[in-house]
Amino acid sequence: MKNIPTLSIALIVAISFVSCERFADGVVHEVAFPEHSPRLAVTVISGDTDKQIVAQVTSTASVLDAAGPQPVAGAVISLSLGEDAIVYTLGEEDFVDFAYKLNLDDTFGHFDGTMTLNVDAPGFDPVTATNVMPPIPEVALTYEYRGDTTNFPWEEEEVIRDIYTLDLVNHADLDDSYLINVDALYIDAFTLDTLGWDQVRMRSQNDQRITEESITGGLIVSDKNTTGWSNGLADITFYSKSFEYDKEWSPVALRLRVQALSPELAKFYESTGDYLSGGFDLFAEPSLIYSNISSGFGCFGLSSQTIVEID
């Protein structure tokens, strides 16, 4: 009996030493993953004024697959209106690099009613999605050149800004979302060749109806947050830094692009923005990207666009 404490100490010491061998590596073990069954991920986003249809069709991949998601060739992608009235079809001949691209003779066009996307690819279960193109946006713009001055802590001088005020339609029977961009047209100062439209950085101010879309740089205006705004989607105000047009490398024209987004497309933009801008956030629950595709990956979204030239 007297030896029990001594034996106990010896036992503790022995266990400690023996088990120290397992101490070298902190790794416990690898988590067993079920075998991944690839599914189709499809993204088709089209607007009424588009001159090309882009369809990305890839197979999902296990996170343990170093190669990642792969494009799927040989798929047939069809867009139909109503009961089986196929409007556009993309096939293997349209597959370029990583996506299917179909150049249109005219624009995509505005369609009333539900459009259906069907994708059939060898070795995969077919997928489908539906979407409704929103009405063409009606926009009333008030533009005030150099209408605002402000100070930013990171700018040494006062910043002069243009003010844009929009009245948009808030349809009573629809979930309205608009993507707003301002573009500037540049020309080569020496050759006078047109260089193309470039996006202008915009900022909003204390307006819950507006979300700055972090990936594309546009503004998303939604009727989800109109509580407290008696005027619905009127008086949407935002700003851009003013150009001095008499200087070199100044734009020669400005335009406002307003895209009405289907609710599904708006959710896809917002969730993608949250996902891609989230990065590693210790305090965040995992993000999910919205999908309306029957496989659960990607998006079929439609939009309609109005362009307003700014004088």
């Binding site: 993953f33 991944h36 991920a41 993204t43 986003i45 607007g47 882009v54 990305q56 890839t58 999902t60 991949a61 296990s62 996170v63 990642g68 998601p69 494009p71 990583f98 996506a99 961009n181 573009d183 193309g196 439209w197 470039d198 996006q199 990936i215 594309t216 740089g217 546009g218 692009r257 895209q259 896809f268 933009y269 993608t272 995992p286 990207i289 990956f297 990607g298 998006c299 666009q305």
Partner: peptide
């Protein structure tokens, strides 16, 4: 995270 997929969104110029 169990799997991954690819998708696209139109860029800022449209």
């Amino acid at each position: 995270s169990e799997s991954s997929f690819s998708a696209y969104i139109p860029d800022g110029t449209g």
